[in-house]
Amino acid sequence: MSWLTDKFSFAVAVLFYGISVVYSVFLWRRGFREDSRVNYCLLLAAAVFHTTAMIKRGFSLERCPVNNLFEATMFVTWTMVMAYLVFGIWSKIRFLGAFASPILFAIGVFALMPSLDVRGTKPEFTGGLVSLHATLILLSYGAFGLSSIAGIMYVTQEHDLKFHKLRAVFSRLPPIERMEKVMNGLLIAGFILLSGGLLLSPILLKQKYDVYFNSDPKLIWSMVVWVVYLMLLVMRGRFGQGGRRFAWGAIGSFAFVLLTFWGVNLLSPAHQ
């Protein structure tokens, strides 16, 4: 099956994300009154092809496929869809898929751009520390991504409740308090993973440049991201800033990550 390449598998996964977007629009127009089991199945099918693509690329490299922007993007979206499939087991949270699929589709289409998949020489195996560092950080972005999707779901439902839209009660969306808990849990998980990934940075810098810190744009950017998420969690934990502001915080923070990640990556000599 030579035609079943990693790129082809990923393209099929993106196609399923696209179909899921169409179905999500239908769910939206129906006021989220229909069961979203079909959408869950579509995202499950996408996840199967997505995982196949990851495995194929991983086996060809003999390491975790996080070496260029295509692989990193593929990894982040894979984390998001896998986390969704776990959360989606609970029927009330399954609607998260309707909010997740447009983002997964958009990032997926972006990842398929040929210029992102630059394949140089086969990367050398460096004891797995680089892979662990990249994996932890990309997993954290996946958690932040899903948290922002939960945030979008929260603000939608909150807006409907606030402005007395009939959809607020007619829909089968979960209560906003539960969405807030999901958001918070994902942010904490993402923050722990990001902290773990960043803690490995000084070791990797020492190995490569014989320094513990340098002004690499991506390192600075990652620390900014870390501080942003820390502030978000502190504001909620310490000052009770929950609800809408917290949801917008989660959405805005991930939008910042999403819009700057690729640019900063290109500027970073240490991450080329």
């Binding site: 439902q157 409740l161 607020a168 009660v169 969306l173 209560p175 906003i176 308090e177 539960r178 808990k181």
Partner: peptide
């Protein structure tokens, strides 16, 4: 019962 439904859309 509408009041109950609203409460269930806000609180877990």
């Amino acid at each position: 019962s509408v009041a109950v439904e609203l409460a269930e859309k806000i609180f877990t």
